[in-house]
Amino acid sequence: MGSTVETDVKLEDTEPRRVVALFEQFATENGLSLRIAQRFELALDEVLTNVVSYAFPEGAQNPYIKVTMQVDGTWLTVRVQDNGPAFDPLHDAKEPDLSLDADHRPIGGLGIFLAKTFVHTLTYDRVDGCNRLTLSQPLEAPPENANP
């Protein structure tokens, strides 16, 4: 059986925290491992913070962001969809140079890199006039019965 939760997101900087808390609850209800939940939580926070901060120009009319969380069979999938101008944050996102010393490290630019690192798959597509970022993760197989 699958489980799905949807939430509309306002253009406010406290919204990623609310949605992440909703995800934590969703992860608990669906019995996700703490490790998968913690890593996925960070990836979702980074992706959604990016959308809330940059997807819409100042004074955009009817901005719309929706997050859909789904566990279906052995996969966890979260979609972040917005009706802002077409923008793929994964394309051209520069890999940070982690070898630089502190003086030369630029401030910022780690969010999408962390999101890519902490989920199995992160994809972008443009669907029905909306940007859609999809985070997905295979779930661990249930433990085998110790007493067959």
């Binding site: 939580e41 960070l42 980074e46 003086d103 780690l110 962390l114």
Partner: peptide, 19 residues
């Protein structure tokens, strides 16, 4: 309990200033 890239940014600023 939790830190995202926004928190790392604050940390990097402190590292640069103290260095």
């Amino acid at each position: 309990s939790y830190i995202s890239s926004a928190g790392l940014r604050a940390l990097l600023v402190a590292i640069k200033k103290t260095n």
